[in-house]
Amino acid sequence: MTDSPTPRLVLWDIDRTLLSVGPVSRELYERAFAAVTGRRLTAVADMAGRTELAITTETLRLNGVAVTPHLLTRFYAALGRAAEELRPRMAEVGRALPGARAAVDALDRLGVAQTVVTGNIRELAVAKLAAFDLDARLDLDTGGYGDHSGDRAELVRWAVARTGDRHGTVVAPSTVVVVGDTPHDVRGAHDAGARAVGVATGRSDRAALLAAGADGVLDDLGDTAAFTALLSAVAAAPSHG
């Protein structure tokens, strides 16, 4: 990893930060729910900024299904199968967000380690990223995924520790920047001692991301130079607390 003033590690949120799969998000749950329960899905929990553990648990309860560890395991497996089946549809109706691929490529050229901190389970994350050719520069083996914990700060800590193990070093949280589109991403980063850059490409606008404490905010990733400059400025700023 690099000793440059850029972050040592960038942790990407996926949905509405790097890409959007539109209606496929609900379709994945419809398929998994039918496969596991034999019933039609009638309600889905709010997904914005939340982990798969939280979304799945609430969705099952909203549909009158008792939640058990065994059922969650089966549901995650069904989600994984649905993700692979629906990957062509993701590419058809979804899109990589403006500047996403250029931003990932730019950090790779700078030698910055990159992975994901996402509410998705790994199988969903891999399918979504691969649908838009966004997976090649990201070390998905070290990511924090949404079936690991309902707490995004725990996912950040998990990804930081695994990245350190991968590179045979200790990664200080203050050298890590989380990039995401919701206040949940910002709070998860700060609760784990990392920095947070918000992108207003989801349902949260600039004001909401700044109010949540984001260290910097962009309208989108369309200006690669502005993005990398903001990351450097955030990484060089004094640590919180």
Score class of each variant (00 low, 15 high):
A35I: 07
V36C: 09
T37Y: 12
G38C: 11
R40A: 15
T42V: 14
A43V: 06
V44G: 01
D46V: 14
M47C: 12
R50M: 05
R50D: 03
E52T: 11
E52G: 13
L53Q: 14
A54V: 13
I55A: 11
I55D: 09
T56H: 00
T57K: 03
T59M: 12
L60M: 11
V65D: 10
A66N: 09
A66G: 09
T68D: 11
H70M: 12
H70S: 15
L71E: 00
L71T: 00
R74P: 00
Y76E: 08
A77Q: 13
A77T: 12
A77K: 09
A77N: 05
A78Y: 06
R81M: 08
E84D: 13
E85L: 13
R87W: 10
M90V: 07
R95A: 15
L97Q: 11
P98H: 12
G99S: 09
A100V: 03
A103S: 15
A103F: 07
A103L: 03
A103G: 01
L110P: 01
L110T: 03
L110R: 14
V112I: 10
A113Q: 12
A113M: 13
Q114G: 02
V116H: 02
V116C: 14
V117Q: 10
I121N: 14
A127G: 07
A127K: 01
L129V: 06
L134Y: 02
D135T: 00
L138W: 05
G144H: 08
G146R: 08
H148M: 11
A153T: 02
A153I: 02
L155V: 03
